[in-house]
Computed example of a mutant assay.
Amino acid sequence: MIEFKNISKYYRYKKIETNALDHISLKIDKNEMVAIMGPSGSGKTTLLNIAGALLTQSSGEYLFDHKPIVGNESEMARFRNNHIGFVLQHFALIKNRNVFYNIALPLKYQKMKKDQVEKIVSTVAESLGISNRLKMYPHMLSGGECQRVAIARAVVTHPNMILADEPTSSLDDDNKYEVLNILKRLNNCGATILIATHDNTVAQICDRKIQLNNGHIVE
C-alpha cells in the first residue's frame, strides 16, 4: 500500500537544522491497521502528514500503490481527496456548520450532485449511529459524537487509507472504546489505517506497532 524509502524531514531556522524524521524506511500493507507510537516530538504526526501528502519529505521517496507521490499543491490536494481520510485529535469540525455539512465537505470538493451527497452522508451517518444528529452543530454534541462525525467525514469518500492522529486522546474510556470499535470495524471492511497514539490500548487492537523516538524507528 505505502512505502517510505529513506525518508527524512528537516526544518531549518537560521543556521539551526532540526530533523523531525531521519532516514525512515517502512512498508504498510493494504488492509493493515498499524499504531505509530512514541513520545511527543518523536515524529509521529510528521510521518502521518507525509503519508497523507500534507507535508513533502526533505529527502527520500514516498510510494503509494508502488507510485511515487510527487507534484504541486493542486495535485497533492487531488491525491488526498481521492485516497486519504483524516481523523484529527481535536475533531477539527467547522463550528458554525451543522453535522451534515461537516461530513459532506470532502464530497463537495468532488463536485458531486446534491442528491448523491445527501444519500452518501445519510448512509455513513446511519452506520456510525449519528443519523439523528445531522442538523445539530458541534457544540451540541458530546466528545464521542464529535469524533464519530470526524470519522464519518474521513470515510465518506471511501478512501484507501485512514490516518488518525491521537483519535482517542480527548475521550473518556467509554467513548474511547466506542471509537476504537468503529476503527476496527472499518479495518475489517478493508480500510488501511495508521494511528498515531500514546495509548497502549489503541496499539493492542492494531496488527502491529512502529515505535519512533527522535525521528528514528526504534522498534
Rank of each mutant, 00 (worst) to 15 (best):
A92V: 11
A35F: 11
E219S: 14
E126W: 01
K119N: 04
I217R: 13
K135G: 13
N49Y: 14
N72P: 09
P138C: 06
I69P: 10
S42R: 04
T168N: 05
L163S: 09
H158N: 11
A191F: 13
N98I: 15
K5R: 14
I50Q: 10
T192S: 14
N19S: 09
F100T: 04
D65F: 12
N98E: 15
K135D: 15
I94W: 12
Y13R: 08
S42H: 09
F79R: 10
I205N: 05
Y137G: 00
H90K: 13
Q204I: 01
L47A: 13
L194D: 14
Q211K: 11
F64W: 08
V155I: 15
V121K: 01
L88A: 13
Q147D: 09
P68Q: 13
Y10L: 06
K27R: 13
T192I: 11
A154T: 01
M1Q: 14
Q57D: 09
P159C: 04
R12A: 08
G38R: 04
K9H: 03
Y13L: 10
V149P: 02
V99C: 08
L186H: 04
K9A: 04
N200T: 02
P138S: 08
L134D: 06
A125S: 02
L21Q: 02
E61A: 06
A20C: 03
M136W: 09
E75K: 09
A154L: 00
A154P: 00
N214D: 11
I205A: 07
L55W: 01
N175G: 01
